[in-house]
Design a protein around this nucleic acid. Structure first.
Lengths: 255, 255
DNA sequence: CGTCCCCTTGAATGAAGTCAATACGCGTGG
DNA sequence: CCACGCGTATTGACTTCATTCAAGGGGACG
């Protein structure tokens, strides 16, 4: 088993980035992920109010989001899930809530039996630590969203969200040459930043005009990271990364 | 040891509400809480960027909040902490972030050694479960805030926040006769809802004029809960409560 | 080749912010 | 005791940013 990083390993990669795991632990977790993994098409609903939860969903590839539909038909996205993300640590809590988790793109999803994961974690304290940390990071991201949505201009909100997504993609090795996939429509971005898609559009145009980034054909390219970070008042501390963006993209090629 | 519910027990009370704990576990947790507990005055900073964290803070009594100061001097509150709440599961993460946790009122705070708590949890899987659940609930609250700040009118935002705080107070037995302490200024409410205190004031006036609630002398009284819930589009599912508000207030008096 | 989804643009409306001023309660100290 | 300062609540007039409404353009795909 090489140190390469195939799709199934993105979660493990993230976890061991902060907490060393034994080989046995990594293998056990990967085995659990592989046990019940399969492809789904875009827009597939993974979990919805009243749905009988079949387990915890881990994204191996592709994007998903968590949203609530309001009475007036508007959609509010409260989280994006990227490759390697655990979508619903809170399956059982979520089942009673008015929220939906759905794929945005075609994706590969592992469905993990919750008690089995809990058992594995109990047998391996480092794994408990790592998963605990992962969920605390998710909570920190959530707080950053609360802040972002509440207190910035449209331009800043979009910029902040893009900074975050860019670094999260980098964290799982999906940034190359200053760009990464970003399979979101302006509706998605707007629904996540509490803006209309129209205003999102105008904000994006400004960001492009300023030469900070380009976003086309579902691909985000950062042209001026420092300026973007400055504009967005983006403090990456909450993502718990150890390294600068763009320095890790090719690690898989070193083997 | 009776079944009464003194201040130090509020966390335990909340935990066992969802997850049965053995007497030994409750005692162990309470002992840990009592080991290093003390009174603090209002506005005391518990944790701040760069501060060497001394442990995890648990509020035994009093209110606290977590906020970020923006460059332009505005304050954004991202969380309120009520009696029985754990303020910073993420101490170590938080220490690197630009956030502050500070008391709002005079309070009693237990400082729990993080490794010791982790050790206790590892020895008692039910405790791990319960604490895990508690932190997932905190994350759900955070998502609700993201939603609240992003998508509702000023009046609805305030109403939603007050609904949440009211139920959370009820959960730890601090609601009596349809009212509870609410030691927040209109600045606090505004900073939490992403509104100016001026606009908060106008929204509050409307809520009072509609006969839904009164809020004076640091005390919140709900006059028309169904109407308030309806206005706020408040879905209590995310708080993970089993009972209706107002039915538990006097449990401590039954001994 | 038409339809659907997504992006773009313009003009009018509206909710919340800003600025400014006043009022009130409360603790401190003259 | 009263004067003062401070934090909090309230009110009014004006401004600004984002929404809403309306319409048009472009690309993918059946």
């Amino acid at each position: 088993m090489a140190t390469r990083c195939p799709a199934a390993d993105k979660l493990v990669r993230k976890l061991r980035d902060r907490h060393p795991l034994s080989v046995a632990e990594e293998v056990a977790l990967n085995t659990l992920l592989a046990a019940k993994a399969g492809p789904i098409s875009g827009r597939t609903v993974l979990l919805d109010r009243g749905m009988q939860p079949s387990g915890i969903h881990v994204l191996l590839d592709g994007w998903a989001c968590r949203y609530t539909m309001l009475v007036d038909g508007r959609r509010r996205i409260v989280a994006f899930y990227l490759p390697g993300d655990v979508c619903d640590f809170d399956v059982f809590l979520l089942a009673g809530m008015d929220q939906t988790i759905a794929a945005i793109t075609p994706a590969r999803v592992a469905v993990v039996d919750a008690p089995m994961l809990a058992g594995l974690a109990i047998d391996h304290p480092p794994l408990t630590q790592a998963l605990w940390w992962e969920s605390l990071t998710a909570a920190a991201i959530q707080r950053a969203w609360t802040l972002n949505v509440g207190q910035r201009s449209a331009k800043q909100r979009i910029a902040h969200l893009l900074c975050e997504l860019y670094l999260r993609m980098d964290r799982v090795g999906l940034v190359q040459d200053g760009s990464c996939a970003l399979p979101l429509t302006q509706f998605h971005l707007g629904d996540a930043c509490a803006l209309t898609s129209i205003h999102t559009n105008r904000a994006l145009q400004e960001l492009r005009r300023d030469g900070l980034l380009s976003l086309e054909a579902r691909r985000l390219t950062i042209h001026d990271w420092p300026a973007l970070v400055d504009l967005a008042a983006f403090d990456p501390a909450y993502l718990q990364l150890s390294k600068e963006p763009g320095t890790s993209g090719d690690r898989a090629a070193l083997d």
